[in-house]
Amino acid sequence: MIIYPSLEKGATIGVTAPSSGLSSELHPLLKQAIERMEKAGYKVVCGETPWTQSKAKSADATLRAAEFNDMMKRQDIDLVFPPWGGELLIEMLPFVEYSIQKPKWILGYSDISVLLLAVTLTTGIATAHGTNLIDLRGEETEATTAMWETILSASEGDSVLQHSSEKYQEKWDHENPSPHVYHLTERTEWKTVSRQAEQIKGRLLGGCIDVIRHLIGTPFGNVASFKEEHIPGEPVIWYLENCELNTADLRRSLVQMKMAGWFNGCSGILFGRSAANEPVGGYTVEDVYHDLAKELQIPVIYDIDCGHVPPQVTLINGAWAEVGVVEGRGTILQHFKR
């Protein structure tokens, strides 16, 4: 059984930095994002950690966990929304209190996906992999990213359909900000290893592979136990996105996940677009995808709207999904099924 939080209009957003905060020269970005949320009708409670950054993290692991735990306990906070990711969130996992009394959404990606996956695997509470708070600071929010509100506002039993974006951003241009932050210039095309239309169904789990791979072998990465307790007999669709790994490191990570049993009962794998994936000795990322599809005998879909090459869809860890690709266009229908 999966437990789904729900977000109501006028809800209160708690902003904390379980990974990286912002150095002083970047504070205007966070202030702008908070103002946008308030103009949209939300109340915002901001902790201390988002305003500090030293030695690759916002604060000591115990302080980060304490602020996060406090926001999860507070009855007046409905969504915990970190400013962005970072590097060392994994340090705080042992100090997180997983006995959550009031289920509430946690939304983010990159290093935040370590926390998202750990919470879902440990508690059976759905978490949301999607936009960062900082990326919502623009005058407008483009259509794919904007679906985060619709999805988080859904209730148990509801279904929400998302479509692949029309265009994606090839590179950041911070010197020339656009009304919706992103600079969408390249035509989006979801691809399949089979080069044919694909349709896969299952429970979604995933995140940034650079960091969630480090949950393997820890108390916070027990996929087998999660499946047995919360989704017995149901297949899993893994969604993965690569921030910085070359193809050899990506391949090693996937083999480790396979050997750890994470892909047992997997019905398909989705890979987000990536600016990394540097080939090693002629071994390309397409080779990685083909090897994985052949070994596991499952569909592999890649270059989807997920991760560090925006925009991105909002994917719910634990939700039942139907993912389809036809002639480069993709759909993800998520069911808030217990």
Rank of each mutant, 00 (worst) to 15 (best):
Y4R: 01
T12Q: 14
I13A: 04
I13G: 05
G14L: 11
T16A: 09
S19Q: 07
G21K: 05
P28Q: 12
P28R: 15
L30P: 08
K31Y: 14
K31E: 15
A33N: 11
A33E: 13
R36Y: 03
M37N: 08
M37S: 12
C46Q: 07
G47A: 08
W51P: 00
S58K: 02
A61M: 11
T62M: 07
R64T: 05
A65F: 04
A66H: 15
E67G: 10
N69I: 02
M72T: 02
D76A: 02
I77W: 07
V80Y: 02
W84C: 06
W84I: 00
L88Q: 07
I90G: 06
E91A: 06
E91T: 04
L93C: 07
F95D: 08
V96D: 00
Y98S: 05
K102P: 01
G108S: 08
V114H: 14
L117A: 05
V119D: 00
T122N: 06
A126V: 06
T127I: 05
A128H: 01
H129Q: 04
N132C: 14
L133M: 10
L136A: 09
R137K: 12
R137N: 13
E139K: 10
E142F: 09
T145N: 09
T150C: 05
S153A: 14
S153Q: 14
A154M: 02
E156H: 04
G157M: 04
E166N: 15
E166A: 15
K171E: 13
W172P: 03
E175Q: 13
N176K: 02
S178M: 13
S178R: 06
S178T: 10
H180F: 14
Y182P: 03
T185L: 11
W190L: 04
W190A: 08
V193T: 13
S194M: 10
S194Q: 11
Q199V: 12
I200N: 05
L205G: 00
G207Y: 03
G207Q: 05
I209S: 11
R213F: 11
P219E: 00
A224I: 01
I231L: 07
I231A: 03
I231K: 02
P232Y: 09
P235Q: 01
E241K: 04
N242G: 04
N242I: 11
A248V: 00
L250W: 10
R251E: 15
S253A: 15
G261A: 12
N264G: 04
G265L: 05
R273M: 13
G282R: 08
G282M: 15
T284L: 14
H290A: 15
I304K: 00
G307D: 15
G307S: 10
W320L: 09
V323A: 03
V326D: 09
T331S: 13
H335Y: 08
F336P: 02
